[in-house]
Write a protein that binds this DNA or RNA. Structure first.
Lengths: 123, 123
DNA sequence: CGGTGATACAACCGTATGGTTGTATCAATG
DNA sequence: CATTGATACAACCATACGGTTGTATCACCG
């Protein structure tokens, strides 16, 4: 139906070991839903629902070939998640940078203050 | 209690907009739970539960300072999720590489077959 | 030590999720 | 065109989740 890849859906879809394994297998882009279902100790319908979740999250696509539908992972979906995490870490690095700036500037302020207090006692 | 960062917990924790925002704010590592709760249109207890989920996932830590507990995000947790996604994309690139190999080899096979069929008609 | 601010936890409620079975669609094939 | 293989979907059940309110812990301060 839809392939709306927002962060909520992407991360939620990745929060299940079976679904992550499907993503992994579908990297090869060769198996249909029945073949995929063969790998897991659950009903075919359950696996089909997992595939549907991944599709809704934009992490996989299905392509009709004959009477089967081949499942392949959509790497752009993965990259959406990755770019978010990258963003967080970039912000973190920026924060560390800013922190060192603050530390150095407060050190400067501190030495400045001690110089002042040396010249003008009682403030 | 525990800080067991497995992929299920990490991705599940990141699959909620409020929790992602908490991770973002806690990058600064200055606010306690009350201050965090002030930013969201829900009860304090709800935010506290979100923080607990993030802590269980190993995405944040709490450090006692006075009567407060300062929340700061644990970048190693983020990196765990990122490394998994990196792994997927690496496998994907490897698969593309292998696919081109297959394509070239099948091209070779194809030309080989056509040569054979030219010499031996009827198979 | 009593009070207060900050955090934790328990009980409860509605809804979502992961699993099941059964039925319907839909394309190839005899 | 009837059958069969592959996929989709609906109904149902148990459990988990996100939210609420209320109560308990716990560290500081007068």
């Amino acid at each position: 139906m839809e392939a709306t890849p927002n962060a909520d859906h992407v991360f939620a879809a990745l929060a299940d070991a079976t679904r992550r394994d499907i993503v992994l297998r579908a990297l090869a882009g060769r198996e249909g839903v029945v073949e995929l279902a063969g790998h897991y100790p659950m009903s075919f319908a359950a696996v089909q629902k997992h595939v549907a979740v991944l599709e809704r999250a934009g992490l996989i696509t299905k392509e009709r070939t004959g009477r089967r539908k081949v499942v392949r992972t959509n790497v752009e979906g993965l990259q959406l998640a990755r770019s978010l995490l990258d963003q967080y870490e970039a912000l973190w690095r920026g924060r560390v940078e800013r922190m060192t700036n603050i530390i150095t500037s407060t050190e400067e302020a501190h030495t400045c203050l001690s110089l002042l207090s040396a010249r003008i006692p009682k403030l």
